[in-house]
Amino acid sequence: MKLKNWKEVNPGSVITEPGSSEKFKTGSWRSSKPIWIEENCIQCLFCWIYCPDNAIKVKDGKRGEFDYEYCKGCGICALECPGKKGNKAIIMVEEGK
């Protein structure tokens, strides 16, 4: 995305395009990464509810893979995940490992 110069920005930094935060990718902020372990997933969708961004994609009522372009690695999904029989369906691993 080409950055605007000072003559092109909106007065008062008002954003006039609704939903434009979708263009703001925050995945590079992440220092640790959530991993989805499908066999432990009970499809409770807690992760989707608790995710403060847009990193968990749901289709036809089912959770799919992470969208890492929006995941800042906060780990809330992994914390809230009830898993199956004590085995977490989301675990956090350090980036670059």
Binding site: W6, V9, S13, V14, T16
Partner: peptide
């Protein structure tokens, strides 16, 4: 025409807004 006021402006844009205000 929905709009958002008061966004966080990071180092990649802050100076452009300040220069516009100075002008």
């Amino acid at each position: 025409h929905p709009v958002s006021y008061g966004p966080l402006i990071l180092p990649d844009y802050y100076m452009e807004f300040r220069k516009a205000q100075a002008e």
